[in-house]
């Protein structure tokens, strides 16, 4: 049973998934930690993925696959024919840098699928990444959230430009559908409705 919600215009439904997600193999390198927690190196620009991991990533030879950003960048030449056929999507973690993707793939609409992995549902970077992909880089195709995706964040994800949601496996996607419509009138402009309320309505005093 699929646990994927897809938006089609204003209607959402649980849909079958035609994409296969490709993960990186586990890292052998020791994770750098600070105060017991994994440090994300975005500020210093250090890579979190090793060349060995990239080389060892197994990509199925047929069908539609979503590959990690680092693998996409490093192995793009080999994947080129399949990219042209629309069989390759790309996924990013929330700490990864969009500019790296743009440098490798200036026309994002050459990709039929982009996905962002959110490790903890409380990591709100996913909302800025979605917003930037849609508004700054003009990405128009499917944008998917996966990982720790729970119903109470769906409304924000939708407003930030996401159009499909892989609900965490232990939760019901059917139940989650309702939360996409928690609010009927947003105040501020965002991706799904760029105009703020004061531009959409004539609000009398």
């Amino acid at each position: 049973m699929s646990n994927l919600i897809k938006l089609n215009g204003h209607t959402a439904s649980v849909a079958e998934d035609e994409w296969l997600l490709v993960s990186l193999p586990a890292s052998e390198a020791e994770e750098r930690k600070q105060a017991g927690k994994v440090v994300l190196f975005k500020l210093t620009g250090e890579n979190t993925v090793t060349n060995k991991q990239i080389a060892n990533t197994v990509i199925p030879t047929t069908g539609k696959v979503i590959v990690p950003l680092s693998v996409f960048i490093a192995r793009k030449a080999v994947l080129q024919a399949r990219i042209s056929k629309g069989e390759i999507g790309v996924w990013l973690s929330t700490h990864e840098v969009l500019e790296h993707l743009i440098k490798s793939q200036p026309d994002l609409n050459g990709l039929p699928m982009m996905a962002i992995h959110v490790e903890r549902f409380a990591d709100g970077r996913i909302f800025s990444l979605g917003t930037l992909l849609r508004t700054r880089y003009g990405y128009q195709n499917e944008l998917r959230a996966f990982g720790d995706v729970l119903r109470d964040q769906l409304y924000f994800l939708k407003r930030s430009g996401f159009t499909s949601f892989q609900i965490r496996a232990d939760r019901s996607a059917e139940d989650a559908l309702a939360s996409l419509n928690d609010f009927s009138v947003p105040y501020q402009g965002a991706v799904d409705e760029p105009q703020p309320v004061f531009q959409r309505y004539n609000r009398a005093v």
């Binding site: 549902f121 990591d123 709100g124 909302f127 924000f156 407003r159 930030s160 105040y187 501020q188 965002a190």
Partner: peptide
């Protein structure tokens, strides 16, 4: 206040 209420991009800040 209105703009910040349920601002989707800033719903879960650090």
């Amino acid at each position: 206040r209105q703009w910040s209420t349920f601002h989707p991009e800033f719903a879960l800040l650090p």
